[in-house]
Amino acid sequence: MSNNASPPLPAHQTKHLPALDYRFRHSLFHLAQLDNGNTNGTALWMGAQVLSAWLSRLLDKPRARQTVPSRRPRVLELGSGIGLSALALSSLGYDVLATDLPDVIDSVLAANIANNVSDLPSESGTIELRALDWTTPPSDWTWIDNAIIASTSRPTAPFTASQPCSLAPPFDLIVTADTVYSPHLVEPLLRTLQHLYTLSVTLADSEKAIKPTLYICVERRDPALVDDFLGKARKIFTVTRVPQRKVVEAMEKGGLLWAKEEWDGMEIWTFTQIRKATGKNV
């Protein structure tokens, strides 16, 4: 990476740019984006920037990386967008399952991963892409399709031995950013998070792994919507906010030296499940 690479700007200042050179630790990601209004996921959002900076600081600690000795730690990301968080987590040594809607994968995500993966550090993990539509009930999901977990717009493909799916539960880390933006998606998102967390806890017990951690980064563009989401989440999880001073420290360490007003309203929360799933929708 060039030492002259500029620190990243807040996402709202760069949405008009078709391409970004994004510095993250010792890597420089070249990211294409679209701001055509077709979908929220094809441009960079600030949540991915803040969450990536926080995870970089957090995962520097050896304890945060503990998993089973026979494999790398695994992370599943919901709403991977243009791929910043997926590339960041891979560079930190995680095997990443990046998920989004098919249109987002086809328009920006797949190309951004393909164009950057060869430049990641040698110790980086793998990145796999699969479509995951939260509105699809988990009973209709599959873990043996190399392209789709759940989609209402595309059928799943028959599994063949030549197309192995290496990344499947349990996940050591579940992350998502800027995914609380529409009232009609609150319950599907929580149902998806509940299912992924419960499944990972159950399978972690079987392989004697550490229980998964779930992080979500939200922006209070609509305070009532965020409060509704967190209120419903508390019926399923123990919900704890990451202290803002720690987020500030992570941002500064990551070179995101932004004025407070540039990222005011960004919050990172951890979810820990406190009761078994009842089988009922959230």
Rank of each mutant, 00 (worst) to 15 (best):
L9T: 07
L9K: 15
L9V: 08
L9N: 05
L9Y: 12
P10W: 01
P10I: 09
P10G: 03
P10F: 06
A11C: 03
T14A: 14
T14H: 04
T14F: 12
K15P: 13
K15G: 14
K15S: 07
H16D: 06
L17H: 09
L17Y: 02
L17S: 05
P18A: 01
P18T: 08
P18D: 00
P18I: 01
A19K: 05
A19M: 09
A19I: 05
L20Q: 03
D21H: 12
D21K: 12
D21Y: 10
D21L: 10
D21W: 11
Y22N: 00
Y22M: 11
R23S: 15
R23N: 03
F24V: 04
F24P: 00
F24N: 11
R25N: 13
R25H: 07
H26E: 07
S27A: 13
L28I: 03
L28C: 07
H30L: 02
L31Q: 05
A32W: 05
Q33V: 09
L34G: 10
L34Y: 06
L34Q: 06
D35C: 13
D35P: 15
N36K: 13
N36P: 13
N36S: 04
G37T: 10
G37W: 11
N38A: 11
N38F: 14
T39W: 08
N40E: 14
N40P: 10
G41M: 08
G41K: 04
G41L: 01
T42A: 12
T42P: 15
A43T: 09
A43W: 12
L44A: 02
W45F: 00
W45A: 01
G47Q: 11
G47C: 15
G47F: 03
G47M: 12
A48N: 05
A48Q: 05
A48I: 00
Q49L: 12
Q49P: 08
L51M: 08
L51C: 09
L51V: 11
S52I: 00
S52F: 00
S52V: 00
S52K: 06
A53W: 12
W54Q: 02
W54R: 15
L55A: 09
L55M: 07
L55S: 01
S56H: 03
S56T: 07
R57V: 11
L59W: 15
L59S: 08
